[in-house]
Design a binder for these strands. Structure first.
Length: 361
DNA sequence: GAGGCGTGGGT
DNA sequence: TACCCAAGCCT
């Protein structure tokens, strides 16, 4: 196809088509205003921020219950700023990327202490806050404060790559994507809050990574990939390398009172600040001391992280509580209360494995 | 700027 | 099964 056949672009018309679609098809999400009250009520910046942090690299389905739980436990930013750190980590357990939770607490406290509890309204100030990067700053400015911003998440990256048939692979194409995206948002005006959300809804439900539903797309007439190529081939990405494998041991240490040794993991590492079970080093962080017990090999579990897979051998040991010497970061939990600790999924898997053994016994 | 950082669902 | 993928940020 010759370059002269490139589609004629009309920003106003494009925006109108997207907003018309959104008016009929917007998803009903817990952090969104109900449609009837939308015009009358201002967005809650605390809710916008909280949902954006939770949604980073995470699916809408996974976030819903966490968002509702957090806003119930901590209805305002001030509540969260004063919350017990371990309680926040416990409630975040299972959602992953735990640095987000550590930064969530820091950010709430900074906004409370330095901005009188109200999020700043400039990109420069937002970017200084922990856990807020280029995307989230733009999202808060537009969604919470109705400022025209170039909001580019994974969805909009994909949509833009297809609209303009950007052949350069990610992540090198990011600069081009931002340039093109700024055209999409140009002069958006009173729809500054809705436009990025509309695009993300289209990305999540129509312009999907695989098998996009172009027949339902309100702007397929503008899509170069649709006319001249195959949309699912965009954006191009460099192929990924194979995941390395790691191994380790995890210790199930049980007392005669049916209590289990649990520890709080050190910050700024894998599963940092989260509860865990003792074990050997598998994340390249320090050395754990191996208790001198009569160990019994109970089995193994495999857990796949983003950048490596881990095979943990579960070692069971019994010890009399009078003989037990706990490290400063360790404590005992009744075996029946392990469900309330708030373990990351890796350790939930271990606990579940051991509990299936108990049933057999 | 490339790699570290979780988890569960889909194909 | 073994990938890929989801409203990224930080170093």
């Amino acid at each position: 196809m010759k370059k002269s056949h490139v589609i004629e672009w009309d920003t106003k018309d494009f925006q109108q088509k997207v907003m018309d679609w959104y008016g009929k098809n917007a998803r009903d999400l817990p952090w969104r205003m109900p449609r009837e009250t939308k015009k009358a009520v201002k967005p809650n910046p605390y809710h916008v921020w909280l949902s954006e942090i939770m949604l980073q690299q995470t699916t809408v389905l996974a976030v819903k219950s966490y968002f509702e739980k957090f806003t119930h436990l901590w209805p305002t930013l001030a509540d969260l700023a004063h919350a017990d750190e371990d309680a926040v980590m416990r409630e975040w357990a299972g959602l992953g990327y735990y640095a987000r939770a550590r930064n969530l607490i820091k950010c709430a406290r900074e906004v409370f202490n330095h901005y009188d509890g109200a999020f700043p309204r400039t990109e420069k100030e937002l970017l200084k806050l922990p856990g807020i990067g280029r995307y989230t700053a733009a999202a808060i400015l537009s969604i919470a404060f109705h400022q025209e911003s170039v909001v580019v998440d994974g969805n909009i990256e994909r949509i833009t790559s297809r609209l303009f048939m950007i052949g350069e692979p990610l992540p090198q194409s990011k600069k081009t994507i931002y340039q093109q995206a700024s055209i999409i948002y140009d002069g958006i005006g009173c729809s500054a809050s809705d436009m990025p959300q509309a695009l993300m809804d289209i990305g999540a439900t129509i312009c999907t990574p695989k098998s996009p539903k172009c027949s339902l797309c309100p702007v397929c007439s503008y899509c170069q990939a649709f006319h001249f190529s195959e949309p699912e081939k965009y954006p191009h990405k460099a192929s990924k390398l194979k995941k390395p494998s790691r191994v380790g041991e995890v210790y199930w240490i049980e007392t005669e009172n049916q209590q289990i040794v649990v520890e709080k993991r050190g910050g700024n590492r894998m599963l940092g600040n989260m509860a865990g079970l003792p074990g050997t080093n598998w994340d390249g962080y320090g050395q754990e001391k191996i208790p001198d017990l009569d160990w019994q090999r109970a089995g193994e579990i495999t857990h796949v992280f983003t950048h490596f897979s881990l095979k943990l051998t579960i070692m069971k040991g019994k010890i009399r509580s009078s003989m037990l010497i706990l490290n400063k970061n360790q404590y005992l939990v009744d075996i029946n209360n392990l469900g309330d600790v708030g373990f990351p999924s890796l350790f939930r898997k271990v606990i579940h494995f051991v509990s299936t053994l108990k049933e057999v016994e």
